[in-house]
Design a protein around this nucleic acid. Structure first.
Lengths: 114, 114
DNA sequence: GACTCACATGCGTGGCAACACATATGCCTA
DNA sequence: TAGGCATATGTGTTGCCACGCATGTGAGTC
C-alpha cells in the first residue's frame, strides 16, 4: 500500500456512505440504536420523529446495509450490522472537536465560532 | 466515559461534517490534495472540474476549517489543515468495503451487490 | 373473519445544494 | 497604468432529498 493510497479511494462510494450519515435524524437513529436491537416504536419514541419519517430513514439505512431488520411477532427490530461503525463515528467526532468545532457546547456554555 | 457514549454524540455537528464529505467532487478534491499544498489550478487540472465549481467547493471546505488557503504571488495554495483526516477516511473506507460494498471494483471486475 | 396494532409505501411539496455563466477582484509583468 | 492571468463571487436554474398525509400490508387477538 503506497503512502498516498488515499488518492485511490473510491470517492463515489465513500461519498454515498457519507450522504447517509449526513442526515442528523438518520445519525440520531443510528446512535440511539446503539448496541442493542430495538423495535421501530422505540426508535420513534427515542427520536421524537414521525413514524413515516423513521420508517423512511430506516429503509435507507437498511438498503445501504448499515442496519438489519428482524421480525418478532408484530414488531420489527432494527440493529446495527456492525457496531464498529459507532467507534468510527466517535473517532471522527474527536477529530472534529479539535478541528471544526463549529457549534459546540463546552461545560454548558455555547462557544459559537462566529 | 460511559460505554454508550455514542448516544451523546453531537449529531447535528457531526452531520454537518458528513454533509461536506458527502459530495464526491469535494471528496475528490480533498483526496487529490493529499499531504501537499497545491494551487487551485492544479486542483482543477487534477479533478477535471470547472474553475467555478472548484472554487465553490474550496470555499465550503475552507469555511468549515478542513482546508487552509495561502497566497503565493498570484496563486492560492490549498492544503489540508489536518492530514489525519485522510487516515480517518481510509479507516471508514475499509469499514465500508467489508460492510456496504455497493458498487465496488475488485481486480477489474464489477461486483455489484444486487 | 373483523378489529387492532406495528410498520411500510405512494404521492405531492418545499427547501437546499451543486452547477454554469457572467463578472468582479487581486496580483504580476511590462 | 494597462493588460493578462489566477481566483472569487453573484445570480439563476435544476435536481434531489427530507418530510407529511393518506393508505396499504402483515401479524396478533377475539
Amino acid at each position: 500500500m503506497p503512502i498516498d493510497s488515499f488518492k485511490n479511494l473510491p470517492v463515489k462510494d465513500l461519498a454515498q456512505l457519507f450522504k447517509l450519515l449526513a442526515e442528523p435524524n438518520r445519525l440520531h437513529i443510528l446512535c440511539s440504536m446503539g448496541l442493542e436491537c430495538r423495535p421501530v416504536s422505540a426508535i420513534i419514541a427515542g427520536t421524537g420523529l414521525t413514524q413515516t419519517n423513521v420508517s423512511f430513514h430506516l429503509r435507507a439505512l437498511r438498503e445501504a446495509g448499515l442496519v438489519k431488520a428482524e421480525r418478532h411477532g408484530s414488531f420489527v427490530f432494527y440493529c446495527l450490522y456492525d457496531t464498529r461503525l459507532l467507534e468510527l463515528l466517535e473517532a471522527l467526532n474527536d477529530w472534529r472537536q479539535v478541528h471544526a468545532p463549529s457549534t459546540e457546547f463546552v461545560s454548558g456554555q455555547a462557544t459559537q465560532a462566529s
